[in-house]
Computed example of a mutant assay.
Amino acid sequence: MRFEMILAEKTLGELVAENPSRSRLFEKLGLDYCCGGKRTLGHACEAKQLFLDEVVSQLQSEVDPSTVEENPAELPLPALSDHIEATHHTYLKQELPRISGLLAKVVKAHGRTHPFLIELQQAYEPFRDELEQHMFKEEQVLFPWIRQIDSVPVAEQRPALSGPISVMEAEHESAGEALEAFRYLTDSYQAPEDACGTFRALYDALATLERDMHQHVHLENNVLFPRALAR
């Protein structure tokens, strides 16, 4: 019971930062550990009408300490910035245009019989544009500052970082809302019976995009940004 209460009082972001493998269970249960990562496990379970003791039991049984993956949250700030760029930004720069292409083909072939696809495209393209601008700002302004934070006087660090970080977090919220819209429009990525191979490839790509974005935003909102502001 004491262990259960300890976990209940930790935030979702803290729990995943301690062990990234926990993200798999949170994804399965619909617990938002990225933009919603500041909520405690107890409050998150209550909001989702989940039994806390069952979730804690699953956390213990599904995560094998001997197979815990390398944890990016343990990297120094410059290396963590590099990891986010090399892993998540590189993925997005490759995948966002590919999804646009898949979506255009599927809308052309199936938009008349599945009009929700047009709405999906109208939601996706602004999301892509905003995310590409978001990454540019991080790579050109925020991450370079974080990489040289140890050489900046402490008195100058928080004022220089707090504004850009607030903007990035607000844009993460906007991206999260778009991802929720994609999931709603696609019935949680369940392809229709008449879906062709390209249609199914689109849904698979969007589902993978959602998982990557959750990991990406978690590392920034719950690890990189708080640690940078705490210096």
Rank of each mutant, 00 (worst) to 15 (best):
T113C: 09
R112G: 01
R158T: 11
A205L: 11
E4M: 13
E46W: 06
K137F: 05
E130F: 02
R24F: 15
I146K: 04
A17M: 05
Y91T: 12
H134Q: 02
H216N: 01
S57M: 04
G36L: 04
A47D: 07
L219F: 06
E54S: 11
A79Y: 00
E9S: 15
V55Y: 03
A123T: 07
G13I: 03
L25R: 04
E9C: 15
L209M: 14
M1C: 12
M5W: 14
E193C: 06
L80R: 01
A207H: 13
G101W: 14
H83Y: 15
A17F: 04
R22L: 08
P226H: 04
P153W: 06
D82K: 10
T11N: 05
E85R: 07
Y203N: 10
D212N: 15
A17D: 06
K38E: 02
Y189T: 06
D212S: 14
T198Y: 04
E139Y: 03
L224W: 03
P72W: 03
R24E: 13
E139I: 06
L120T: 02
V217D: 01
Y189G: 05
G36E: 00
L219E: 02
D204S: 15
C35N: 02
R227W: 07
H172F: 00
Q121F: 08
F127T: 04
H172C: 00
A195T: 08
V217P: 00
L103E: 03
I149C: 13
E173Y: 01
E210S: 10
N222G: 08
S21T: 09
I6M: 13
H83K: 06
S66H: 13
V68A: 12
E130P: 08
P115R: 07
N221Y: 01
L7M: 15
E138P: 01
C35A: 07
K137G: 09
E125R: 10
D53T: 12
A178S: 11
E46D: 14
S61H: 15
T198N: 14
M135C: 10
E14K: 12
L229P: 07
A155H: 12
L12E: 00
S61I: 09
Y33G: 00
R22K: 14
P126K: 07
Q49G: 07
G197I: 02
L77V: 07
I165H: 00
A86D: 14
E27N: 12
C35Q: 00
A109F: 06
L131T: 09
K38V: 13
P20I: 00
